[in-house]
Computed example of a mutant assay.
Amino acid sequence: MTDTTPSEAKAAETSLGALLGEVTRDISTLMRQEVALAKAELKQSAAQSAKAGGLLGGAGYGALMAIFFLSVALWWALATVMGGGWAGVVVAVIWAVIAAILYVTGRRQLNEVQGAPQTVETLKEIPETLKRNEENR
């Protein structure tokens, strides 16, 4: 004696048209939910990307302004101790290091953006779910 699954019992009692209608509704609901999930995840990822982009842009502009004003002052101060040319090189190296640190920090934040990981996971589950239902037939 074989036990029938709930799906098999329902299939035996329900017409093919009703079953197809139910499957169509379920797939439609699933797709709408997946689209809603993808929208929510992408909105969050876009906000994180915009923040990281703003930080990178701000870091670039800040580095430019700092290099301009502070390097003139530092160059002038170092020129009293060493030659003006070498003072300019020292100032340029200092600001290059600062700009590199700002770039690395912004880049790290940009790499933390995850996209839509939950949507990808749930979409991967759909084929497996359909396979399980086919195996029960």
Rank of each mutant, 00 (worst) to 15 (best):
K131S: 07
G115S: 02
E135M: 08
G21N: 09
A38F: 03
G106D: 01
E13Y: 07
R108W: 06
M82N: 01
A77V: 11
Y61A: 11
L64M: 09
Q114G: 09
R32D: 05
I67S: 02
W75H: 02
Q109E: 10
Q44Y: 06
A77W: 05
F68A: 02
T24Q: 11
K51H: 06
G57H: 05
A50S: 10
A50I: 13
A73Q: 07
A96Y: 09
L110I: 06
V91C: 08
W75V: 03
V23Q: 13
I126S: 01
E41C: 04
V89T: 11
G21W: 09
T122N: 02
K51M: 07
L130E: 07
L30P: 04
M1S: 14
K10H: 13
V81T: 07
E13Q: 11
A99T: 04
V89Q: 05
F69Q: 02
L42S: 00
I27F: 10
L16N: 06
E34S: 12
T119Y: 08
E121Y: 07
L30A: 10
N111E: 13
S28A: 15
E22W: 06
K10L: 12
R137D: 10
V120Q: 12
E8V: 14
L42K: 04
N111M: 12
K10A: 12
F69G: 00
K43L: 08
I94D: 00
F68W: 10
V72Y: 09
G83L: 14
T2Q: 09
K51D: 07
I98M: 04
Y61I: 15
M1C: 06
Q114C: 03
G57D: 04
W75R: 02
T129L: 10
Q109L: 12
E121M: 13
A46K: 09
E128P: 00
I101Y: 11
A46S: 13
T4C: 05
G53E: 12
E13G: 01
N111Q: 14
G54K: 11
A47R: 13
V72I: 14
A18D: 11
Q33I: 09
G88E: 04
S49R: 12
E34K: 05
W86T: 07
G84K: 13
K131P: 00
Q109I: 02
V93L: 15
W86L: 10
E22R: 09
R137G: 12
T4Y: 15
F68S: 02
E41T: 11
A18N: 09
L70D: 01
A18L: 10
Q44S: 14
E34Y: 05
T24F: 10
A99Y: 06
M82Q: 06
S28W: 15
A9G: 05
T29S: 09
L30E: 00
T122P: 03
I98N: 01
W76H: 09
L74F: 00
A40T: 13
W86S: 05
K124L: 07
L78G: 02
G106H: 00
V23F: 14
G85H: 12
Y103W: 15
M1H: 14
T105K: 10
Y103R: 05
T4V: 08
I126V: 15
S15I: 04
L74K: 01
V97P: 04
T119A: 08
Q33L: 09
A66D: 02
G17I: 07
P117E: 08
L102H: 04
T119S: 12
G17H: 06
N111L: 15
G60L: 10
L30R: 14
A52W: 03
V89D: 01
I27M: 14
A87W: 03
T14H: 05
T80W: 00
L16G: 02
Y103P: 03
A52C: 07
